[in-house]
Protein backbone atom coordinates (compact mmCIF):
# COMPACT_ATOMS: atom_id res chain seq x y z
CA UNK A 1 0.00 0.00 0.00
CA UNK A 2 1.44 3.30 -1.02
CA UNK A 3 0.08 5.23 1.94
CA UNK A 4 2.56 3.68 4.30
CA UNK A 5 5.37 6.10 4.81
CA UNK A 6 7.50 4.41 7.39
CA UNK A 7 7.12 2.01 10.23
CA UNK A 8 7.96 3.62 13.53
CA UNK A 9 9.17 1.39 16.32
CA UNK A 10 9.90 2.59 19.81
CA UNK A 11 13.60 1.74 19.71
CA UNK A 12 14.26 3.94 16.71
CA UNK A 13 12.40 6.77 18.37
CA UNK A 14 14.54 6.51 21.46
CA UNK A 15 17.71 6.90 19.42
CA UNK A 16 16.39 10.18 18.03
CA UNK A 17 15.26 11.32 21.44
CA UNK A 18 18.70 10.79 22.97
CA UNK A 19 20.38 12.80 20.29
CA UNK A 20 18.44 16.01 20.63
CA UNK A 21 17.37 16.04 24.26
CA UNK A 22 19.97 15.23 26.89
CA UNK A 23 18.64 13.21 29.80
CA UNK A 24 19.93 15.50 32.48
CA UNK A 25 17.77 18.41 31.34
CA UNK A 26 15.34 19.97 33.79
CA UNK A 27 12.13 21.61 32.65
CA UNK A 28 9.94 24.03 34.45
CA UNK A 29 6.22 23.24 34.65
CA UNK A 30 4.26 26.16 33.22
CA UNK A 31 1.52 25.66 35.77
CA UNK A 32 3.08 24.99 39.19
CA UNK A 33 6.54 26.35 38.38
CA UNK A 34 8.24 23.23 39.76
CA UNK A 35 11.44 22.02 38.06
CA UNK A 36 10.81 18.57 36.63
CA UNK A 37 13.38 16.06 35.43
CA UNK A 38 13.00 15.93 31.65
CA UNK A 39 13.16 12.15 31.59
CA UNK A 40 10.35 11.89 34.13
CA UNK A 41 8.22 14.25 32.11
CA UNK A 42 8.76 12.21 28.93
CA UNK A 43 7.92 9.01 30.78
CA UNK A 44 4.71 10.66 32.02
CA UNK A 45 3.81 11.84 28.52
CA UNK A 46 4.26 15.47 29.57
CA UNK A 47 1.92 15.34 32.55
CA UNK A 48 3.52 17.23 35.43
CA UNK A 49 4.21 14.73 38.24
CA UNK A 50 3.78 17.52 40.75
CA UNK A 51 0.51 19.22 39.73
CA UNK A 52 -0.95 17.01 36.98
CA UNK A 53 -0.78 19.86 34.45
CA UNK A 54 -1.10 18.51 30.90
CA UNK A 55 1.76 20.08 28.96
CA UNK A 56 1.50 20.08 25.15
CA UNK A 57 2.57 16.75 23.72
CA UNK A 58 4.55 16.45 20.45
CA UNK A 59 2.74 14.35 17.83
CA UNK A 60 5.25 11.47 17.91
CA UNK A 61 4.82 11.16 21.67
CA UNK A 62 1.04 11.24 21.27
CA UNK A 63 1.16 8.40 18.75
CA UNK A 64 3.47 6.45 21.03
CA UNK A 65 1.00 6.97 23.88
CA UNK A 66 -1.96 5.69 21.88
CA UNK A 67 -0.64 2.77 19.85
CA UNK A 68 0.08 -0.63 21.34
CA UNK A 69 3.78 -0.96 22.18
CA UNK A 70 4.23 2.47 20.60
CA UNK A 71 4.21 0.90 17.14
CA UNK A 72 2.49 2.45 14.15
CA UNK A 73 2.85 3.18 10.46
CA UNK A 74 2.76 6.79 9.38
CA UNK A 75 0.51 7.69 6.48
CA UNK A 76 2.22 9.42 3.60
CA UNK A 77 0.58 12.59 2.39
CA UNK A 78 0.61 13.75 -1.24
CA UNK A 79 2.28 17.12 -1.56
CA UNK A 80 0.06 20.17 -1.83
CA UNK A 81 0.71 23.50 -3.55
CA UNK A 82 2.98 25.42 -1.22
CA UNK A 83 2.51 29.14 -0.75
CA UNK A 84 -0.23 29.71 -3.35
CA UNK A 85 -0.58 33.34 -2.27
CA UNK A 86 3.17 34.11 -2.36
CA UNK A 87 2.54 35.37 1.11
CA UNK A 88 4.72 37.46 3.32
CA UNK A 89 3.97 39.42 6.45
CA UNK A 90 6.99 40.38 8.50
CA UNK A 91 8.56 37.22 7.16
CA UNK A 92 8.03 35.11 4.05
CA UNK A 93 5.60 32.23 4.53
CA UNK A 94 8.06 29.87 2.83
CA UNK A 95 10.66 30.81 5.47
CA UNK A 96 8.18 30.23 8.27
CA UNK A 97 7.43 26.81 6.79
CA UNK A 98 11.12 25.99 6.56
CA UNK A 99 11.64 26.98 10.20
CA UNK A 100 8.67 24.94 11.37
CA UNK A 101 9.87 21.93 9.39
CA UNK A 102 13.36 22.01 10.80
CA UNK A 103 12.08 22.64 14.32
CA UNK A 104 9.59 19.75 14.31
CA UNK A 105 10.98 17.39 11.69
CA UNK A 106 7.46 17.30 10.20
CA UNK A 107 6.20 18.30 6.77
CA UNK A 108 3.17 20.06 8.23
CA UNK A 109 1.01 20.34 11.33
CA UNK A 110 -0.82 17.01 11.03
CA UNK A 111 0.63 13.51 11.17
CA UNK A 112 -1.56 10.52 10.37
CA UNK A 113 -0.79 6.99 11.48
CA UNK A 114 -2.37 3.56 11.48
CA UNK A 115 -1.86 0.81 14.02
CA UNK A 116 -3.50 -1.01 16.89
CA UNK A 117 -5.01 0.55 19.98
CA UNK A 118 -5.81 -2.03 22.66
CA UNK A 119 -5.80 -4.52 19.83
CA UNK A 120 -8.25 -2.65 17.60
CA UNK A 121 -7.05 -1.27 14.33
CA UNK A 122 -7.44 2.52 14.24
CA UNK A 123 -6.23 5.51 12.28
CA UNK A 124 -5.04 8.45 14.37
CA UNK A 125 -4.32 11.94 13.07
CA UNK A 126 -2.48 14.28 15.42
CA UNK A 127 -2.27 18.01 15.07
CA UNK A 128 0.98 19.37 16.50
CA UNK A 129 0.79 22.83 18.04
CA UNK A 130 4.56 23.18 17.65
CA UNK A 131 4.12 23.39 13.87
CA UNK A 132 2.91 26.96 13.27
CA UNK A 133 0.37 26.71 16.06
CA UNK A 134 -1.14 23.56 14.59
CA UNK A 135 -2.76 25.76 11.98
CA UNK A 136 -5.04 24.26 9.37
CA UNK A 137 -3.82 24.84 5.84
CA UNK A 138 -3.85 22.73 2.72
CA UNK A 139 -1.08 20.44 3.99
CA UNK A 140 -2.84 19.73 7.27
CA UNK A 141 -6.18 19.38 5.47
CA UNK A 142 -4.67 16.88 3.05
CA UNK A 143 -3.12 14.87 5.90
CA UNK A 144 -6.47 14.59 7.67
CA UNK A 145 -8.36 13.73 4.47
CA UNK A 146 -5.73 11.13 3.56
CA UNK A 147 -5.93 9.62 7.04
CA UNK A 148 -9.71 9.42 6.76
CA UNK A 149 -9.32 7.67 3.42
CA UNK A 150 -7.08 5.08 5.04
CA UNK A 151 -9.70 4.54 7.77
CA UNK A 152 -12.37 4.12 5.08
CA UNK A 153 -10.13 1.70 3.24
CA UNK A 154 -9.42 -0.34 6.37
CA UNK A 155 -12.98 0.06 7.68
CA UNK A 156 -11.69 1.15 11.06
CA UNK A 157 -12.28 4.00 13.51
CA UNK A 158 -10.73 7.41 13.00
CA UNK A 159 -9.35 9.36 15.94
CA UNK A 160 -8.51 13.04 15.55
CA UNK A 161 -6.28 14.61 18.18
CA UNK A 162 -6.85 18.33 17.68
CA UNK A 163 -4.61 21.22 18.74
CA UNK A 164 -4.72 24.39 16.75
CA UNK A 165 -4.96 28.14 16.83
CA UNK A 166 -7.21 27.90 13.77
CA UNK A 167 -6.74 28.48 10.07
CA UNK A 168 -3.30 28.89 8.44
CA UNK A 169 -3.79 32.56 7.66
CA UNK A 170 -0.81 32.65 5.30
CA UNK A 171 -2.84 30.50 2.90
CA UNK A 172 -5.76 32.90 2.97
CA UNK A 173 -9.12 31.71 1.75
CA UNK A 174 -7.72 28.28 0.82
CA UNK A 175 -7.14 27.58 4.50
CA UNK A 176 -10.73 28.57 5.29
CA UNK A 177 -11.95 26.10 2.66
CA UNK A 178 -10.18 23.26 4.50
CA UNK A 179 -12.93 23.52 7.13
CA UNK A 180 -15.52 22.50 4.56
CA UNK A 181 -13.15 20.05 2.94
CA UNK A 182 -12.37 18.08 6.09
CA UNK A 183 -16.09 18.12 6.91
CA UNK A 184 -16.65 16.19 3.68
CA UNK A 185 -14.21 13.62 5.04
CA UNK A 186 -16.17 13.43 8.29
CA UNK A 187 -19.37 12.84 6.31
CA UNK A 188 -17.73 9.99 4.43
CA UNK A 189 -16.86 8.30 7.73
CA UNK A 190 -20.44 8.79 8.83
CA UNK A 191 -21.81 7.40 5.57
CA UNK A 192 -19.56 4.36 6.01
CA UNK A 193 -20.73 3.88 9.60
CA UNK A 194 -17.24 4.29 11.04
CA UNK A 195 -16.62 5.95 14.42
CA UNK A 196 -15.08 9.41 14.49
CA UNK A 197 -13.61 10.30 17.87
CA UNK A 198 -12.16 13.70 18.65
CA UNK A 199 -9.59 14.34 21.36
CA UNK A 200 -9.48 18.04 22.14
CA UNK A 201 -6.14 19.18 23.50
CA UNK A 202 -4.75 22.50 24.62
CA UNK A 203 -5.43 24.75 22.79
CA UNK A 204 -8.02 24.17 20.06
CA UNK A 205 -9.71 27.28 18.74
CA UNK A 206 -10.92 29.08 15.61
CA UNK A 207 -11.65 27.31 12.37
CA UNK A 208 -10.56 23.90 13.63
CA UNK A 209 -12.94 24.10 16.57
CA UNK A 210 -15.65 25.43 14.23
CA UNK A 211 -15.45 22.41 11.94
CA UNK A 212 -14.25 18.82 12.37
CA UNK A 213 -13.22 19.20 16.03
CA UNK A 214 -16.88 19.70 16.96
CA UNK A 215 -18.30 17.05 14.61
CA UNK A 216 -17.15 13.88 16.35
CA UNK A 217 -19.39 11.06 17.48
CA UNK A 218 -17.64 11.46 20.81
CA UNK A 219 -15.68 14.45 22.11
CA UNK A 220 -12.98 13.82 24.69
CA UNK A 221 -11.12 16.79 26.17
CA UNK A 222 -7.87 16.86 28.10
CA UNK A 223 -8.06 18.52 31.53
CA UNK A 224 -7.98 22.32 31.51
CA UNK A 225 -7.45 22.51 27.72
CA UNK A 226 -8.43 25.88 26.25
CA UNK A 227 -11.21 25.17 23.75
CA UNK A 228 -13.37 27.71 21.95
CA UNK A 229 -14.20 29.60 18.82
CA UNK A 230 -12.78 33.05 19.50
CA UNK A 231 -9.66 33.44 21.58
CA UNK A 232 -10.21 34.91 25.07
CA UNK A 233 -8.21 38.04 24.20
CA UNK A 234 -10.46 38.86 21.23
CA UNK A 235 -13.58 38.34 23.33
CA UNK A 236 -12.29 40.56 26.13
CA UNK A 237 -11.50 43.29 23.63
CA UNK A 238 -14.93 43.00 22.02
CA UNK A 239 -17.13 42.91 25.09
CA UNK A 240 -14.79 44.99 27.27
CA UNK A 241 -15.14 42.85 30.33
CA UNK A 242 -12.98 40.35 32.13
CA UNK A 243 -13.83 36.73 31.46
CA UNK A 244 -14.59 34.43 34.38
CA UNK A 245 -12.03 31.97 35.75
CA UNK A 246 -12.04 28.72 33.83
CA UNK A 247 -13.80 30.24 30.81
CA UNK A 248 -13.38 28.07 27.68
CA UNK A 249 -11.55 25.38 29.64
CA UNK A 250 -12.35 21.70 29.06
CA UNK A 251 -14.37 21.44 32.28
CA UNK A 252 -16.41 24.50 31.24
CA UNK A 253 -17.22 22.87 27.89
CA UNK A 254 -18.25 19.70 29.69
CA UNK A 255 -20.59 21.74 31.85
CA UNK A 256 -22.02 23.45 28.76
CA UNK A 257 -22.64 20.22 26.90
CA UNK A 258 -19.97 20.54 24.22
CA UNK A 259 -17.80 17.58 25.20
CA UNK A 260 -18.68 14.14 26.51
CA UNK A 261 -15.89 13.78 29.02
CA UNK A 262 -12.69 15.25 30.35
CA UNK A 263 -10.09 12.50 30.51
CA UNK A 264 -6.63 12.42 32.08
CA UNK A 265 -3.92 11.74 29.52
CA UNK A 266 -2.92 8.55 31.31
CA UNK A 267 -6.49 7.24 30.91
CA UNK A 268 -6.88 8.41 27.31
CA UNK A 269 -5.81 5.22 25.59
CA UNK A 270 -8.05 2.91 27.59
CA UNK A 271 -10.99 5.29 27.14
CA UNK A 272 -10.52 5.41 23.38
CA UNK A 273 -10.02 1.66 23.25
CA UNK A 274 -13.22 1.01 25.15
CA UNK A 275 -15.21 3.39 22.94
CA UNK A 276 -13.81 2.01 19.68
CA UNK A 277 -14.58 -1.55 20.73
CA UNK A 278 -18.11 -0.63 21.75
CA UNK A 279 -18.79 1.32 18.58
CA UNK A 280 -17.25 -1.32 16.31
CA UNK A 281 -19.16 -4.14 18.07
CA UNK A 282 -15.89 -5.78 19.07
CA UNK A 283 -15.48 -7.82 22.26
CA UNK A 284 -13.68 -6.41 25.27
CA UNK A 285 -9.94 -6.07 24.86
CA UNK A 286 -8.39 -9.25 26.29
CA UNK A 287 -5.81 -7.36 28.35
CA UNK A 288 -8.18 -4.64 29.49
CA UNK A 289 -7.87 -3.95 33.18
CA UNK A 290 -9.40 -0.49 33.30
CA UNK A 291 -11.92 0.47 35.91
CA UNK A 292 -15.27 1.95 35.07
CA UNK A 293 -15.78 5.40 36.48
CA UNK A 294 -17.72 5.39 39.74
CA UNK A 295 -21.41 6.10 39.31
CA UNK A 296 -22.37 9.52 40.63
CA UNK A 297 -24.39 9.51 43.81
CA UNK A 298 -28.05 10.20 43.12
CA UNK A 299 -29.22 13.51 44.53
CA UNK A 300 -31.99 13.46 47.09
CA UNK A 301 -35.37 14.39 45.71
CA UNK A 302 -36.53 17.80 46.90
CA UNK A 303 -39.87 16.35 47.95
Amino acid sequence: MNWINSVVRPKIQNVFKKRDTPDNLWRKCGSCGEMVFHRDLVAAFNVCPNCDHHIKLPSDERLKLLFDRGEYETISVPSVPSDPLKFRDQKKYTDRLKDARSKTGKEDAVTGAVGRLDGSEVVVAVQDFAFMGGSLGMGAGEAIVKSIEVALDKKCAFIMVAASGGARMQEGILSLMQMSRVTVGVQRLRDAGLPFLVVLTDPTTGGVMASYAMLGDVHIAEPKALLGFSGPRVIEQTIREKLPEGFQRAEYLLEHGMVDMVVHRHKLKETLGRLVRLMMHQPKAPQSDYQLPAAPTAPQAAG
Binding site: M209, A210, A213, M214, G228, F229, S230, Q248, H256
Partner: peptide, 10 residues
Amino acid sequence: EERGQAEAIA
Protein backbone atom coordinates in the same frame (compact mmCIF):
# COMPACT_ATOMS: atom_id res chain seq x y z
CA GLU B 1 -19.00 30.67 23.52
CA GLU B 2 -21.14 29.36 26.37
CA ARG B 3 -23.74 28.17 23.93
CA GLY B 4 -21.25 26.60 21.54
CA GLN B 5 -20.47 29.09 18.77
CA ALA B 6 -17.90 26.70 17.29
CA GLU B 7 -20.26 23.74 17.31
CA ALA B 8 -23.04 25.81 15.75
CA ILE B 9 -20.80 26.88 12.85
CA ALA B 10 -19.43 23.36 12.41
